[in-house]
Design a protein around this nucleic acid. Structure first.
Length: 394
RNA sequence: GGUCCCGUGGUGCAGCCUGGCCCAGCACGCGGCCCUGUCAAGGCCGAGAUCGCCGGUUCAAAUCCGGUCGGGACCG
């Protein structure tokens, strides 16, 4: 059973706690991404040790492998993967629409435009009112997700928090397309909620509705009020958030006031350090983001004082500089080894380099969340924002 | 003394027999950029070689011929 309490507020920002059957997530809080029931490159206990309180896994990926039934037979995600903290499952909506051909994820993020998408944005996924047909990226087999089946799958996974199946619209589609998707997502949310209630899942799991509407204020308004009218224990803000940070600031600024104050708000897929602060300032309670773990695998450590908060470990230390990634960081790497060693590990392709860097980036993110929470209690979130301002490339 | 292999960017190789599609390809390395509900321990871009050297044949040679230098194998 999810219970949300607010401990302190500063403007739109609030500090609180999400209580679940598997412990507490302090908010503003961060879900580390464990798509296939694994933090890539790091064991869950190590993540916990550096302050990670919650993981988010992916229904789409787990349904394809090993199957949500298989996870259920092992007692659900927590027991299956040996995680005793808070766990969430994303519905897989994002994957259904991003894993077809090419890099539609880029398109949803506005990173590039696929001309072929302009008229028929999602042709490789057969989408109808009932649900979505797609091909497994693993074996090409045909699969079908419906709002109801997505809830059932997530019931089997048995995470503390689950999300409604939704369609994510790319940035460069017509307003009309996004409008009709927004309406359909509202209908799908209703169906998810109905199934969730029929199955009497509320005592153990919390279903979040996801606000859509792309970058269109009227559609966001429509979606937010529509979602808020349904009895979801929490809400996500998803869909295409635009091309720039200013775009999503605007979306969040207008959506948050429309959502019930007493329920948690989760901003899907956002998580650069400055984003976490900006989101918290705007009343976001939880975040999830693959970036910290992903860039770690590619040799980048999160730090303050570097452009985009990234230190390229494959080059850092080349000029003889050594020392920990970040002075005072309690992660294993910062306590035990220097940049020169990490540089060597990444260049040599040693997986230890990945593990240590993933741990550091999660530690960095968890510590930043802690600073955000303390700042809210102290009414000093604006100061933290100034302090942690991004550095422009020299 | 004789026979035979090899010599191509930083490294390892491909191309050579059947000359032109090679101002030379691949891998790794190197440099830069990228990664925000993870098909991502990944992706994109770039720098870098007058093909050991000299000469010849030819419209045209990394590719054929002669010589030469260097490395290696084997036979005596």
């Amino acid at each position: 059973m999810l219970r949300f309490e607010i401990l302190a507020e500063q403007g739109a920002a609030r500090r609180g706690r999400i209580h679940t059957d598997h412990g507490v997530l302090e908010t503003p809080g961060f879900f580390a991404v464990a798509t296939r029931a694994a933090l890539k490159g790091l064991d869950a206990a190590s993540a916990r040790r550096v302050g990670i309180q919650a993981l988010i896994c992916n229904t789409y990926h787990l349904e394809l492998m090993p199957g949500t039934e298989a996870v259920a037979e092992r007692g659900g995600l927590h027991r299956f993967m040996g995680w005793d903290g808070v766990a969430a499952t994303d519905s897989g909506g994002f994957q259904v629409f991003s894993l077809r051909h090419g890099q539609v994820a880029d398109e949803i993020k506005g990173r590039r435009r696929l001309p072929a998408l302009a008229e028929e944005p999602l042709e490789a996924v057969r989408l109808d009112e009932q649900g979505a047909d797609f091909r497994s990226y693993l074996d090409g087999s045909r699969r079908r997700f419906t709002p109801e089946s997505a809830v059932e799958m997530q019931r089997r996974l048995a995470a503390d928090i689950l999300f409604c199946l939704d369609e994510c619209t790319p940035l460069h589609v017509t307003r009309e397309y996004t409008a009709s998707a927004t309406e359909r997502n509202l209908r799908w949310a209703r169906r998810c909620l109905d199934r969730y209630q029929e199955l009497e899942m509320a005592s153990t799991q919390a279903l979040y509705g996801i606000v859509h509407g792309g970058i269109h204020p009227e559609l966001r308004h429509r979606s937010a009020t529509g979602m808020a009218a349904m009895l979801f224990p929490g809400f996500g803000i998803g869909d295409c958030l635009g091309e720039t940070k200013q775009d999503w600031y605007g979306v969040v600024d207008m959506v948050v006031p429309l959502l019930p104050r007493d329920r948690p708000r989760h901003l899907l897929g956002v998580g650069e350090p400055d984003d976490l602060i900006e989101g918290a300032l705007r009343g976001i309670d939880t975040f999830d983001c693959a970036m910290p773990t992903r860039i770690a695998r590619h040799g980048h450590a999160l730090v303050f004082g570097r452009p985009r908060f990234r230190l390229d470990l494959t080059t850092a230390g080349r000029a003889g500089e050594d020392g920990p990634i970040e002075e005072g960081c309690p992660c294993t790497a910062c306590r035990q080894v220097g940049r020169a060693y990490l540089r060597h590990l990444h260049r040599a392709g040693e997986m230890l380099g990945i593990s240590l860097t993933v741990e550091h980036n999660l530690c960095f993110t968890a510590r930043l969340m802690e600073r955000i929470r303390e700042a809210i209690s102290a009414g000093a979130l604006e100061e933290l924002r100034r302090e942690a301002m991004p550095v422009s490339p020299a």
